[in-house]
Amino acid sequence: MMVHVDNLTKRFRGTLAVDRLTMQIPTGEIYGFVGANGAGKTTTMRIIAGLLKPTSGKVYVNGVDVSKEPLEVKRNIGYMPDFFGVYDDLKVSEYMNFYAGLQGISKSKTAELADSLLQLVRLTEKREAYVDSLSRGMKQRLCLARSLIHDPKFLILDEPASGLDPRARVEMKEILKELRSMGKTVLISSHILPELSELCTAIGIIDSGRLVASGSVSEVVEKMSQSGRVKIKVADREEEAVKVMMEMPGIGSISSVAGVIEVNVSGGNEEYVRILRTLVEKDIPVISFQPIEGSLESVFMHLTERGNGNEN
């Protein structure tokens, strides 16, 4: 287990930012951390990175207690916050050299390491450029390279794609895929939910400082979806099909356009079977019957309906 968070609580002058949060991230996992602004994502990530003292609870990274052996933990952690944190008056190579020094990497190894990381983040040609001349996306990638300079086993990426244009997002996504193939364990928070669901092997949904769901994307979506949705295509008798379904229990809203009917259904597969059987029994000419899978986005929107909490 790379990360084990046990009953973590953090209070800021009476405000509860993280509330008895318990989560585990197995080694090699890309764990997406989903939650509205102020849900407690950044606070949790900062505590895991050893940048904040928890009010109570324990955090272990690679089996090491963060509050007892912070330096040992820092050897294994690469942290990329949701801001750039760059020195504009340094060149890209000097920036990498500076953080290599802070990570205790010898000068002889630094140049080679920096080159390979700049290659990974596609900034090789900017090696001698000043940091302030880089675009937003480039700065973000440079920060990612910086967080990898000491070859950490575990990466914490707080909103790595925020503020980036679509192209820069795609580039960031490609880099994260490479990190996944390198076997890194990654904890990533993002508002770009479709990207998260594609990238992550597991996700956790945090709301008001509490982890409300955790598991693989499909598991969480299934667990959190309150109702299913099914798309039915009929060859004829569309109005009759709608009328039949409206009389059935457990049916929510129905919409129909040009022979395609979309129905909200409370319940799972059994309910779908019952609808299809009824339509066939009523001799409705059904061409196709397709349950629509729930998305991470819809789950997130549902969970964060209240969601304009305070930033923490």
């Binding site: 940048l51 942290y79 801001f83 944190g85 000491h150």
Partner: peptide
Amino acid sequence: ERQTLDLMLVTKTP
């Protein structure tokens, strides 16, 4: 102010 302090504190430099 430059938001670089955390980046230093997260390194293994005491």
